[in-house]
């Protein structure tokens, strides 16, 4: 009786295999880069990996938490770009003080998330199609706020202000970027929220079986609304951070990261079918993705391949997740139902 503790639990966990993959990647790239006369393991690489990590981490936290309940948001990057633009527009054009601008930005993002949740919960849309459709609407909004009448096109903004400069460049103790601190805080906050609080327990239970959770007095709908809104707010934050770090805001921001959050979450062990995995996994998953990308860059791998690799990793992560889930659970009824629905419902969800 009692629960498994400490080392033995860790040895059996997914985390260990993730860390081993990470280690293998590091070794491969160290050897590979040494062969072509470059150095992989140094502070520069590390800092640059962390640098790339920051923006995507916000996306991954939002997507990961949402994926825990088996839902998916494809509008995150659009919302993120909107977040960056809205902040700049509200400070530069509307001359709002930064706290007001920031709150306005995040509130609009949250509203977008709620719209997604309404379509999914009240109209029974499949999350994919709902968020794909809304991302077009959000894109319209994004273009609207950044519209330049003279050129009849959406503008690219270059912007700097004490607030965004501080967010983008300030370094704690002179060497840790403030955004990294924010990222760590975010991971710790969500990690603790999900693993230590009632809210977290509820998310996992709802993700495991919404019917049973409801009949045990939990409220799956409420959780869905909160997580869709949260995913949107986190995407908005990612956009704001990216804006602050680059000093730029435009429509294309984050456009390469449409699936980064999703893939990191799945790599980190959150199942496509909900109910399993955690923030630690997401972090390491993200670390693996970024190490991989950085490694590829260092060994001079063609940057144009990134889109191909994204697709490959997405499909592999999905296949692995599917076979794993199938093996572990021998496809219990819930999954079979989900499949039936796929089959019936345009073979998607």
């Amino acid at each position: 009786m009692g629960s498994e503790k400490g080392l033995s639990k860790f040895l059996k966990s997914k985390m260990l295999s993730l860390l081993i993959i990470l280690l293998i990647l590091v070794v491969i790239f160290s050897v590979w880069s040494a062969l072509i006369g470059k150095k992989f393991l140094n502070t520069d690489t590390l800092l640059s990996i962390i640098d790339m990590l920051v923006v995507t981490s916000f996306l991954a936290i939002g997507s990961g938490a949402l994926l825990l309940t088996g839902n998916i948001d494809l509008s995150t990057t659009t919302i993120g770009a909107t977040g960056g633009l809205l902040l700049v527009v509200s400070m530069k054009t509307w001359l709002l003080p930064w706290p007001v601008a920031l709150i306005l930005t995040l509130a609009v993002c949250a509203a977008f998330g709620v719209i997604n949740a309404v379509l999914v919960n009240e109209f029974n849309f499949q999350p994919f199609i709902a968020t794909m459709a809304t991302s077009s609407v959000f894109k319209g909004f994004q273009m609207f706020i950044s519209w330049d009448k003279a050129s009849q096109a959406a503008q690219n903004f270059s912007y700097s202000s004490p607030f965004t400069d501080f967010l983008g460049t300030y370094e704690v103790f002179g060497f840790i970027p403030i955004t990294v601190v924010l990222m760590i805080i975010a991971f710790l906050f969500y990690g603790i929220l999900l693993s230590k609080t009632k809210f977290g327990d509820t998310v996992y239970l709802v993700g495991g079986n919404p019917n049973a959770a409801r009949l045990s007095g939990l409220n799956p709908k409420k959780i869905s609304y909160i997580l869709f809104a949260n995913s949107a707010v986190m995407s908005g934050l990612a956009g704001v951070v990216l804006m602050a770090r680059t000093g730029q805001a435009n429509q294309l921001a984050l456009s390469n990261n449409m699936f980064t959050g999703l893939v990191a979450a799945m790599l980190g062990g959150i199942s496509f079918y909900g109910g399993n995995g955690g923030m630690g996994g997401v972090f390491v998953g993200l670390l693996i993705l970024n190490t991989f990308n950085k490694g590829m860059a260092i060994v001079n791998f063609d940057a144009y391949w990134s889109s191909v690799l994204t697709g490959v990793v997405l499909v592999i992560a999905l296949s692995l997740d599917f076979t794993k889930t199938k093996r572990l659970h021998k496809l219990p009824a819930r999954l079979k139902d989900a499949e039936k629905q796929h089959a019936a419902a345009g073979g998607s969800r």
Partner: peptide, 8 residues
């Protein structure tokens, strides 16, 4: 289906 979360 309704009583338990069998994976947990």
């Amino acid at each position: 289906e309704q009583g338990l979360i069998i994976w947990r």
